[in-house]
Design a protein around this nucleic acid. Structure first.
Lengths: 269, 269
DNA sequence: CCCGCTTTTCCGATGATCGGAAAGCCGATA
DNA sequence: TATCGGCTTTCCGATCATCGGAAAAGCGGG
């Protein structure tokens, strides 16, 4: 999780090129997808000259691009490289049709997320047709992260993770995202047990006030947890019992497609 | 397009770290998503020691990962960085609901592609329920590239591109992907004109024998071409006239969502 | 025309990078 | 158990890419 933040400024020397490049790329996000060189150098904490040289090189390889205004953006080539190799993305590709099935049955936000480096990482999201939800649930964007303890997906992922990981997560300070966010480790443990027993999580308001996250586990070969499939519905309505079977069905389909069920998955490659 | 191939082997010195890193990442693809260090060093054309050092550093930043067997893969963190910033990906996100609409109407492979560095790059693909197509059309995978002249999407992208780009593409040698692939520049020019006039492309067998690609343009603000929306149907059937309006409707919706229509798009950011 | 801003070029010093050599490690084979 | 072969990791001296300050070159806007 070390690279999650921009900890130190530029060390005058003693830092690898790779970490500088990562800092440059991490300077971009959904809010600020393009910027000038000087802004980039500031946000990345690199001297102008260094930023200039590295950016120039990255442009040459398509890792960055200039848009019409000459502003810098992350290049498609980078996405191409990342998407071609990543297993998470092939998971997404397999899951997508099943997600559409869910979407067709329950007309709500549907997301697919994995556990990576101690947080929830959203791989895919299908949006509800109605736009009220659109505003409220803007948190769960694709390629966005969220804390494990404050999302239904996170709790499901945690519930089926090895004990050492659970302990590690619960030992760290837990942020209160909303009023309802559960931050008490023993209570969370109880919830995790309940999730494992029931096979799904349904928790009102822990991530977004007024909305209930419902999530179920997706397993891969070896029956290890691979992802969480989630739908988010307005709290208070009685659609939780309606949504859960839809998610379970889809999740089961995805798990089967991933080769779950076999006692220990076949070695890939 | 220089980075498209692995041209030269390792130059004993005089090559930037960035280009080495790109070579390492480019060594992975859909067929070989994970490999050992020694295999990686070979495929990337780097000395073992150098590969070892760089990989170690990349692992630290999450750009690569080790799977259960200790094999190396591309890390999700890389995808996260790429997806957060890339404009192409936000285009994908906007287009997805419309693609689902198309998918619901015509039950065929539906893809979204952009023109990048002289080739077609597929951003998204929704697969047809039937699995016959699945095998035949495995070419148009997500994050995969295809030549501009040998796909319906490519020809649409080319038709609405500036003339200098068309000339550049047509000047290069054009590969014959199938029997039907058109490789004669004047003929292609005629097709491009026809595409512009009709507003869509429908060409049988140029990419995959027995299948007809149908593609329409998607415009962004400033009415410049942003992407191509495509559906692929079995040749010979009479479903082309059925598919075209569905694609046009969806493409129009996406274009509107992207801010097309205004004479010159508002400056972003 | 001038001013403030961003971008680009220049260049000397320096330490990260390079990669050969060799040691470790591990599983397979005898 | 001993030997072998392949893969991985450590070590280390030479060197060259990298670093970043300084200054020049663009680029609007007033």
């Amino acid at each position: 999780m070390a690279w999650q933040t921009f900890p130190m400024a530029n060390s005058p020397t003693g830092e690898s090129v790779i970490s500088r490049v990562v800092r440059l790329m991490a300077a971009f996000d959904r809010q600020v997808p393009s910027m000038s060189l000087s802004e980039l150098s500031q946000r990345a904490g690199l001297p102008m000259t260094t930023a200039h040289r590295l950016v120039e090189e990255m442009l040459k390889h398509g890792l960055m691009e200039r848009d019409a205004d000459g502003q810098l953006r992350v290049g498609v080539r980078l996405w191409e490289l990342a998407a071609r190799g990543s297993q998470a993305l092939s998971l997404r590709e397999i899951a997508l049709p099943y997600m559409e099935d869910v979407q067709a049955a329950v007309h709500q936000y549907t997301t697919l997320a994995v556990l990576d480096h101690g947080s929830v990482l959203y791989l895919e999201r299908l949006s509800a047709p109605d736009s009220a939800a659109k505003r409220a649930l803007d948190a769960a964007h694709i390629a966005q992260r969220a804390p494990l303890h404050a999302t239904s997906s996170g709790l499901v992922l945690l519930a089926y993770s090895p004990t050492w990981l659970q302990q590690e997560v619960l030992a760290a300070p837990l942020e209160k995202v909303t009023e309802e966010t559960i931050t008490d480790p023993p209570t969370i443990r109880r919830h995790l047990a309940e999730i494992r027993q029931r096979g799904y999580a349904a928790l009102p308001g822990i991530a977004v006030k007024g909305w209930t996250g419902i999530a179920v586990p997706v397993f891969s070969s070896g029956n290890t947890i691979a992802a969480a499939l989630n739908a988010t519905v307005p709290s208070g309505e009685t659609n939780v019992p309606f949504t859960v079977p839809a998610l379970l069905t889809a999740a089961h389909g995805i798990s089967r497609a991933l080769g779950a069920g076999a006692p220990s998955g076949p070695r890939r490659r």
